[in-house]
Write a protein that binds this DNA or RNA. Structure first.
Lengths: 186, 186
DNA sequence: GTCTATACTCAGATAGAC
DNA sequence: GTCTATCTGAGTATAGAC
């Protein structure tokens, strides 16, 4: 077997950057090929199902990233709450490049994407919510309060990213991160 | 001159429904034609610049809708505050079909759309913000508070629409509308 | 102003050599 | 496993009759 020219991780990161900024319909195989560092035919070798396969792989990659950088940090009971929340906020800041990048789940939430990948999108978001729900309960919130705070946290992140992108400034996102931290540590 | 088969408003509403649910890249001329009730060539007669022209027309239509249903309601000093806010919330509920439809500004905020229509998108959102800023100041908020409340209101609407679409329930959006009302009328 | 028919480009996807 | 070359269809857009 000939060696891989580009590692799986690098390939996925390249594909992710295109899908997140262009959405499913806007991501062309030429762009995907260029971002992945592989010719179109080579992409089809790795993802026999074509663009749908690539998207599913990127969604799985995103879910594992969220699990590692958010869910597992929030539920790591060996660390004190303050440390976990601070680390989580830093990680979320990094995931969205300080507010310059939007969320791939949002990019894929137009009709074409949601019709094909609805289940995977819902699952990734639920993982995020579950992390914050777990953390909220541990901080003494009721079940009900921890759920509504987790949802509001997700709403704040997504909404501030919409505002930031539209208005051309990362400020709303930066502000929201501070607010989220206060919501859980006050 | 032959009479118009479909009115301008009907045409724009048809185009709007496709752009909002599919985004710019996902909206094909075949779909746009069908939704508008006009054949492709007829669409090009009305919008000589093609898809870009159609999008600009729909953006202008959206802005005038927001002006009428949100901005002018919020700034109508002949009405008491409670009436204006109640009417505004009802109108926003209607604009997004109770949380089942997403915001066209969001659909057009992927790279392709924002690169072409960034100015128009920003302008429409600013109009929304200005309505809430005006209202907040009239309710006795400081300049600073009225701005941050307006931004949070926009974030809440957009974020809850993302959550609603992804999770397949309108509940987050419905909840948020109640919260917004309380933010301004308490 | 609207339509049918058509041009042309680029999209997604495959075949087969190395 | 990666590549060049190619196929097929859908995409945007136009010509010209009515």
């Amino acid at each position: 077997m000939r060696p891989q020219k580009v590692s799986d991780i690098e390939t996925l990161q390249g594909l992710l950057s295109v899908f997140r900024s262009k959405g499913y319909d806007g991501a062309s195989l030429n762009e995907l090929s260029q971002a992945a560092g592989l010719k179109k035919a080579s992409l089809y070798h790795r993802f026999p199902g074509g663009k749908k396969d690539m998207t599913l792989a990127v969604l799985a990659f995103m879910e594992s990233t969220l699990k590692e950088h958010v869910y597992e940090v929030l539920t790591d009971t060996k660390q004190p709450g303050q440390v976990r929340m601070t680390k989580t906020i830093e990680n979320i800041d990094g995931l969205y490049k300080g507010g310059e990048e939007i969320c791939m789940y949002r990019s894929l939430s137009l009709d074409t994407g949601i019709n094909i990948f609805g289940k995977e999108i819902q699952q990734g978001i639920q993982l995020l919510l579950d992390g914050f729900i777990y953390f909220g309960k541990e901080m003494g919130m009721t079940e009900e309060m921890s759920i509504s705070n987790a949802e509001q946290t997700f709403i704040d992140i997504q909404g501030s990213l919409v505002l930031a992108k539209s208005m051309g400034t990362t400020r709303p996102f930066k502000n929201i991160l501070v607010q989220i931290k206060e919501r859980y540590l006050k």
